[in-house]
């Protein structure tokens, strides 16, 4: 049994991986915080994310991408060894429309990791209204893939 990868090393790996994901970059998703077993991401409001041109409200699909990315980071933070993870399933409940012009935050918590599967929950909200969730998500992620562990060359 190898020693767990230290928290700071896991944070650094996610920072390195995340900044190389084209879709996250194109959406403008930023890492806000990487607590142990969790992740907080910020999605700055931007015109290309709009789903309803009358109201300026962002598209539900953007929230899906934000929650997926945040859940993935939370799972990775909860792992003691840096192995690849893949979304198995993800359920999103859309509780209310996001407000036009405001950033969206997503906060995910990975509450259970087994040898093959990790379970994670996530809430999306505006910083201005942290108790009024825009959407909640629940997902299961496969831990480790047939590609094996992340090689240092891929992680840098």
């Amino acid at each position: 049994m190898t020693d767990p990868t230290p928290l700071e090393a896991r944070r650094a790996l996610i920072q390195q991986f995340f900044t190389r994901v084209p879709h996250n970059i194109a959406l403008g998703i930023l890492i806000e915080d990487l607590p142990a077993d969790g992740g907080v991401m910020r999605l700055p409001y931007a015109p290309h994310l709009v789903g309803n041109p009358h109201t300026g409200v962002i598209h539900g699909g953007v929230i899906t991408a934000l929650i997926d990315a945040t859940c993935g980071a939370a799972v990775f933070m909860a792992l003691h060894q840096p192995v690849p993870v893949a979304t198995l399933d993800l359920r999103i409940d859309y509780l209310r429309a996001a407000r036009a012009g405001l950033d969206v935050l997503a906060h995910a918590h990975c509450y259970k990791v087994t040898s093959n599967v990790a379970f994670v929950r996530c809430e999306a909200y505006h910083a201005e209204e942290p108790d009024a969730f825009i959407a909640t998500g629940a997902g299961a992620f496969m831990v480790g893939t047939k590609r094996g562990t992340i090689r240092p060359a891929e992680a840098t």
């Binding site: 190389r20 994901v21 084209p22 879709h23 996250n24 970059i25 194109a26 959406l27 598209h59 539900g60 699909g61 953007v62 899906t64 991408a65 934000l66 929650i67 997926d68 990315a69 979304t87 993800l90 999103i92 590609r147 891929e154």
Partner: peptide
Amino acid sequence: DTNVGNPALPALHGGALGAVLE
């Protein structure tokens, strides 16, 4: 390129797939 979620494989982002399904 902007719909890629994993550049190492490479694979499309789960969010882009979810969006086209919705």
